[in-house]
């Protein structure tokens, strides 16, 4: 066992540096993943805006139609999301 204080200190320093390096690399990886996650969720803004626009400006006016097929689709969709399947709350 090496008891030379200088060498012991140097050895500890090396160990500490290695540990820090490992930690830093792990943090860098987490940061990259986090940045990708943030970017992914930011992209939802455009998607939500486009979807809202399509629904409000295209689908809702289309549903305002005398075509019985449209009425049937609207009714089917409405029933499918109504808790008692008859349309009431």
């Amino acid at each position: 066992m090496d008891l030379n204080p200088r060498r012991v200190l140097a050895q500890r320093r090396t160990e500490r540096d290695t540990e820090r390096d490992t930690e830093r690399r792990a943090l860098e990886r987490r940061l990259e993943a986090l940045e990708a996650d943030v970017q992914e969720s930011r992209a939802l803004n455009l998607r939500v805006a486009e979807l809202t626009d399509v629904v409000m400006e295209l689908l809702v006016p289309l549903a305002d139609s005398d075509d019985p097929r449209v009425a049937a689709i609207v009714e089917r969709y409405r029933l499918a999301i109504s808790p008692d399947r008859r349309g009431g709350d």
């Binding site: 940045e35 943030v38 970017q39 930011r42 992209a43 803004n45 455009l46």
Partner: peptide
């Protein structure tokens, strides 16, 4: 760039 791009770009 990332913020503006993430919110608005990609279409």
């Amino acid at each position: 760039r990332r913020r503006l791009g993430g919110w608005f770009r990609g279409n």
